[in-house]
Design a protein around this nucleic acid. Structure first.
Lengths: 148, 148
DNA sequence: ACCCATCATTGGTGTCAGCCTACAATGGGC
DNA sequence: GCCCATTGTAGGCTGACACCAATGATGGGT
């Protein structure tokens, strides 16, 4: 079966959307096996890369609604991946920090993500993957921050 | 603000997912202005590329649930983009065909899609876009058909 | 001391995509 | 003629996602 209509396959954005969705879907499937969603991984990554943060700053950085961030942090805290502590200087703020367990969890998740990546990018050799990554990075950096 | 955590930006699949979502979102926004969704465009493209089809074959080709296909065709028919006709040989089947109006509509939509593409791929020159497209095409073709 | 802004939190809304069941009409094997 | 498979159709359910309003605690300016 010819599968995809050539009119669509000719659009780079279509391929981008389709392959991106495939990648996201696969990773999400793996994560849901552990009771996690993609936002959980994003939060863990942000904490690992940028250190402990006020909840609000985390939400702003990841461009997620603060009220949704609460739930994500709730679940991460329930899994001992994250610790909440009132900021002693400004007691309105809650400082969120990665626990050792959280760091391990993140390592395991990135390993899974790389496995998914190997699967999705199977037809490309190392050089191809590098150029693809570089191109996408340029596109991504030029994208406006928000979802729109 | 540093925006994206490096741990995530290092994953090609993350960039793929993010840029793909951006592209899809922008095009969807344009389409919704005309009361259409992405599936409508996909169906129009499939009809233009492969000719009139039984509804079931269309659904199988695009990997969409037949019951959802009904609604998409309903809306396309209401907009005079598509014609339904019972197959005279097998009266269970419905042959769906593109109308001239539908063909025009598709041309307008692909023009919009290319405009969105120009916007998203702004940081890349023509050569970069060509290599990106070629790489994505290889990845896409290697992807299994279904969503999983 | 007072007023307003900020922060985390709760809870609710709307949308959308994907999926699954039931059903009526039709076709085709036997 | 009978039984089962196929096709289009209708309807509803679910999970994810984004967004928004209200509230209680706190901070800080004046």
């Amino acid at each position: 079966m010819t599968g995809t209509p050539p009119t669509l396959a000719a659009l780079t954005t279509y391929l981008l959307s389709k392959t991106g969705k495939a990648a996201r879907g696969r990773l999400a499937a793996h994560l849901s096996g552990e009771g996690l969603r993609l936002w959980h991984m994003a939060v863990l990554a942000a904490l690992a890369d940028f250190g402990p943060q006020a909840q609000r700053d985390l939400a702003a950085r990841l461009v997620i609604d603060p009220s949704d961030m609460v739930k994500v942090i709730d679940e991460l805290a329930a899994a001992d991946c994250v610790e909440r502590a009132r900021d002693t200087a400004d007691r309105r703020r809650v400082r969120v920090a990665l626990t050792p367990a959280g760091r391990d969890r993140l390592a395991a998740l990135t390993a899974r993500a790389e496995a998914v990546q190997d699967e999705v990018l199977a037809p490309l050799d190392a050089a191809d993957r590098a150029t693809l990554h570089a191109l996408l990075l340029r596109v991504h950096e030029a994208l406006p921050a928000g979802p729109e």
